[in-house]
């Protein structure tokens, strides 16, 4: 469903990514791991159209998508969250999710100000869907709060709800568990499982928590200094010499 072919990215002579190939199949939960600065977030930014890769191509459902602006990529059904949480701080929790449905709704200027029946119906649907999503991530009670007033873990979950409002087929999660405690991580794992099953999603996630990655991902790729040094099942990755050497460290 998602295929990266020979992706390289240079920033002013610095090679952040070097000939990375990656294939994510439909319905997979795919993990992307590697030390800080390995290029994981850069890869996300390339997939979502924020960066244009220096070389190589991004294919989504067989179509070449690199070169499209981010909002078009989103409209193709790729939703994402951000490592350094990017919520609409001074909007309510509910409105954050409602903005998320922008790509899959239509209301235009005149319909909106005239309050046409079509638009009202759409607004009702948006509200209903957003509330369902908030229910799912457990934020329904906080829907009138400002997003900035949520706790860290809640903000991460809100970002997921917002990304889901896009009705994506592919969801990119950038360190969804960062800053969460053990209980929150447990809840997050079941949430990821749940949305993957329920919405028939394909998920690509970047995460540092090995426990989480090893237990929910079917397949994992390891990046190091912009190169892919391994990919395979969690078992294969755990036993891969190069991965142990450069990232996991010697087993205790």
């Amino acid at each position: 469903m998602l295929e990266l072919k020979h992706i390289s990215q240079e920033f002013g002579g610095l090679r952040a990514l070097d000939e990375v190939n990656l294939i994510v199949n439909e319905g997979q939960i795919y993990g992307l791991i590697g030390p800080n600065g390995a290029g994981k977030t850069t890869l996300f930014n390339i997939i979502t159209g924020i960066y244009q890769p220096t070389e190589g191509g991004v294919y989504f459902q067989g179509q070449k998508i690199d070169g499209n602006p981010p909002h078009q990529v989103a409209r193709m059904g790729i939703g994402r969250t951000f490592q350094n949480i990017r919520l609409f701080a001074k909007l309510s929790v509910l409105d954050n999710v409602r903005v998320g449905s922008h790509a899959v709704t239509q209301a235009g200027l005149f319909g909106s100000i005239l309050g046409l029946p079509v638009v009202r119906r759409e607004e009702k649907q948006i509200l209903h869907k957003s509330q369902t999503l908030l229910e799912m991530v457990g934020l329904q009670d906080k829907r009138w709060e400002y997003a900035e007033n949520l706790s860290y873990g809640e903000q991460r979950r809100l970002e997921i709800a917002r990304a889901l409002a896009l009705q994506p087929t592919l969801l990119l999660l950038d360190e969804p568990a960062a800053g969460m405690n053990a209980t929150e991580k447990q809840e997050l794992m079941s949430l990821i499982y749940y949305i993957q099953k329920e919405m028939k999603l394909t998920i690509l996630l970047v995460e540092h928590d090995m426990n989480l990655v090893m237990s929910i991902c079917e397949r994992i790729a390891v990046l190091d200094y912009g190169r892919k040094i391994a990919d395979g099942s969690p078992e294969q990755i755990k036993n891969d010499e190069r991965v142990i050497q450069s990232y996991l460290g010697a087993p205790a």
Binding site: P69, H71, A74, F82, G100, H102, V104, E122
Partner: peptide
């Protein structure tokens, strides 16, 4: 919908783009 996306641009352009 349009009004919300205007507020979203004010709050965070990159996230607004990611929402389509």
């Amino acid at each position: 919908r349009l009004g919300r996306s205007m507020y979203a641009i004010r709050e965070n352009e990159i996230a607004a783009e990611a929402c389509g």
